[in-house]
Design a protein around this nucleic acid. Sequence first.
DNA 1: AGATGAAATTGACAAATATCAATATTGGAG
DNA 2: CTCCAATATTGATATTTGTCAATTTCATCT
Lengths: 232, 232
Amino acid sequence: MPDSVHEEIRKLHLFDAMAVEHFQTLMRGAFVQTFPPLVDLITEGDPSDFLHVLISGSVDLFSAWNDRETSLATVRPVSTFILAATIRDQPYLMSARTLEKSRIALIPSAEIRRIFDADSDFARAIVTELALCYRSVVKAQKNLKLRTSSERLANYLLRAQARAGGQAEFELGFEKRRLASVLGMTPEHLSRAFKGLQPHGVVATAMRVGIAEPDKLKRFARPNPLIDDPKT
Amino acid sequence: MPDSVHEEIRKLHLFDAMAVEHFQTLMRGAFVQTFPPLVDLITEGDPSDFLHVLISGSVDLFSAWNDRETSLATVRPVSTFILAATIRDQPYLMSARTLEKSRIALIPSAEIRRIFDADSDFARAIVTELALCYRSVVKAQKNLKLRTSSERLANYLLRAQARAGGQAEFELGFEKRRLASVLGMTPEHLSRAFKGLQPHGVVATAMRVGIAEPDKLKRFARPNPLIDDPKT
DNA sequence: AGATGAAATTGACAAATATCAATATTGGAG
DNA sequence: CTCCAATATTGATATTTGTCAATTTCATCT
């Protein structure tokens, strides 16, 4: 594995405080692989053999049951995924597939657990990371249970706009069918939801979205930091 | 705070490995209070001043937005709640209220964070606890996004039966209106969902539920350990 | 035991969301 | 640049879920 990747992983909050020798141990057992788009990386129910670190590209975390399937989250670089399964040495709860060509570092879970026992700085970093993950799922749960689909879309667009730097017009970033799944609705319904937001100043063309009057949209969306702010 | 309570808290996985002196420090700053039913303990958005440990009774974790409200979980003794907010020193994401008369130990969050930095055994225990919490919310999310309300009810009943020791008839444990909220539906709809499960062998009378033919119900519910097993 | 108020159920209806089929659009491959 | 296949949209309709009002059941207090 090239040193530049080491450095990038080391920069992650999860790894930046641990002892050098422990980090090197982890990296010795790890390897980097490049995957084409739409490759299944892990399948829910499988044993959690590797902690994954997404270096570049993007990954969809999803789950299936009884012929239905839903997207639970999108992983963007540089970050880890399926940390909880690794820590608990339990099967994955979600499946993962690449959305585009992606470079992923794989660190053996057994090593992670071993170093976790030996390095308390690493253990503390894991706590912070897990608490953050936990809170983000709680927010997703509130979003889903307390809001209608249009409200979820409206708030999603406001968040996407903030992520894009606050400009009035921005790229949607991924396919509408996946957005629909993330938001918990069908693609057809999403299409109509976009239309329903037109009176609130949303202009959607292909992959670009414009928010004419953010205040107007906000009056409809009623964003709330306890649901929508990824930082808290 | 009486010693018997110390012992009970000490028995919790979260506290059973930490150094004695650290545990005692925590207990010195802590206090126990008894609350009547339906008392608001915490309100989402408030700073997380205390880690709560439920000694007896039961507590509803819920959230509100825009005049709507939903139950997210029920806490049963003996366990902690709002650990993630405490660790991250961030506002609570959920509100909490007692469902019945409850005894609750309150441990100052600042102390928890201090000992967390000093005691690596404690830090490790927190990791395990958080990973468990995280996975349980992911399961709840999958339950909500992949299943219809009848399917959620059916699987809930199977889990409740397992919790009650597997007997054919068992107590529901709490009000149907709250069950409805937990399952993400209205009380009226829940009432109809119960009826809809009659052909699958469910007999519901007041607070008691009977499952005549578990296999029949399972064929409809299709329980899945990656959603329904609280242990994995 | 009877009265009382909350919770649960039922019925009629409305809204939200999904499904299916048809058409339009779009982003790439050659 | 054009065609192709996937994606997105639209329309019509079905299903699921929610709302409101009326009624019944239940638990509890006296």
